[in-house]
Computed example of a mutant assay.
Amino acid sequence: MSRVSSIEKDRRLIEESLPLSEISLDTIIEVGFKGLEKGKRQEYLKVFKIKPMVRGPRIRNLHTWFARRPCSLSRMLTLSSVVSSETTKDVLFNALGVKGLSIVAHKYGSGLLFYAKPDKDLVEKIVNESMKKPPTEVTVLDPMAGGGSIPLESARLGFRTIAMEYNPVAYLVLKATVEFPAKYADSGLFEETLKASKDFIRRAREELGRYYGDDTEGYIFARGVRCPFCRGLIPVQGIEPEITKDSSFRKRFLKITYDRQKKTFSVETTDEPIRSITIARRGNYIMCPYCGKWFQLRGRT
């Protein structure tokens, strides 16, 4: 009986209750690409006292790793697995770094918890109260670390962190986002990485800038083939007549015009409904819109 009572008294916060609905407002922004809808933006403002970030740079933008968990949620779950169930929501939020969102908002224009640093002093205080030891003496083990959100946030909270992963891509992401910054933070790694990144961006703009307009708001990517007879470029996949699926936006349609003389095509958007812009097909054969000859598609298009 005394053992059961002892276990019940030693329950962690994650076993009792978590403010998932509030944190989810932040995770939607972190893992999504469209930001929050109007109603959710008002809710975010009420909970976090700042404007939500529409979108911004995140680790998931470096490599699309579908198993990557939101960092804000990973931070909360990791800390909640360690601290006592008596920890209040306000204390938890402050330890996670919610107070620092105002600094983040001032720096970036709006807030995202991933950018805010945990309150290390408060984390150490509540961990000491719960575990009778500092965070550096608490080990967090993630045996299937994947994209590394849990190890990253565990390290940011100050815990001794061990991550395991056998997938080589995820392993490299872990090395770059968790291990190297922790090991080489004071050796100029950030400055060298920033320098290399700026050089990469400069070279990319020089080589690819002519393909992307300064005032462009979005891109439509399509796969295409060249006609074996006239060498005209033909868009085959990834083109649909209606390009605005969201009912809250004005309907816009894609119009493709083929220049038979130059063997090129131009694309524009229009309000005029267009039913279809598909190329004439018969099984695996298509008709060239320039010369009118049929040919067989081979391989991937």
Rank of each mutant, 00 (worst) to 15 (best):
A145Q: 07
R156Q: 03
R250P: 09
S110I: 00
I103M: 06
T301E: 04
E16G: 12
I256M: 13
Y290W: 11
V4E: 15
T216S: 08
L141Y: 09
T64S: 15
K34H: 14
S149T: 05
F159A: 04
T269G: 00
S84W: 07
D121W: 01
E242S: 15
E191N: 03
K183Y: 11
R11W: 12
G213Q: 13
P70L: 12
R210P: 04
D259W: 02
A163W: 02
A176T: 08
P52Q: 10
G292R: 10
V267F: 06
K251A: 08
R205N: 15
P181M: 12
S187F: 12
I14T: 08
G32P: 06
A95R: 00
Y184N: 15
I50C: 05
P168C: 12
Y212V: 14
P135I: 07
L73R: 05
P289G: 10
P70G: 15
P118L: 08
L254C: 02
D121V: 06
E268L: 03
I256S: 08
C71N: 02
R202Y: 10
E22S: 01
S247T: 11
F229Y: 14
H106V: 11
L113H: 01
I279G: 06
D271E: 10
L62M: 14
Y108T: 06
P70H: 09
L79W: 02
I274K: 03
K132Y: 07
T64N: 15
L20Y: 13
K198H: 14
P118I: 03
K133P: 01
S84H: 04
K46W: 09
Y108F: 12
R231D: 09
T78E: 06
Y212N: 14
I28T: 07
R202H: 11
C230M: 07
G148P: 05
T27P: 02
Y212C: 13
L73H: 04
A182V: 10
R210D: 05
Q42I: 14
I243E: 05
I29C: 15
G232P: 03
I50Y: 03
A105S: 11
A116L: 04
G97Y: 02
S21F: 12
I243N: 05
E86N: 05
K46A: 08
T193V: 11
F253S: 01
A116R: 00
P134L: 02
I50S: 03
C291T: 07
P135M: 08
Y219M: 14
G218D: 14
K183A: 13
A170M: 13
G188D: 00
A204W: 09
N61F: 00
C230A: 07
L194R: 06
S6K: 15
V173Y: 00
T269V: 10
K132N: 13
R252N: 10
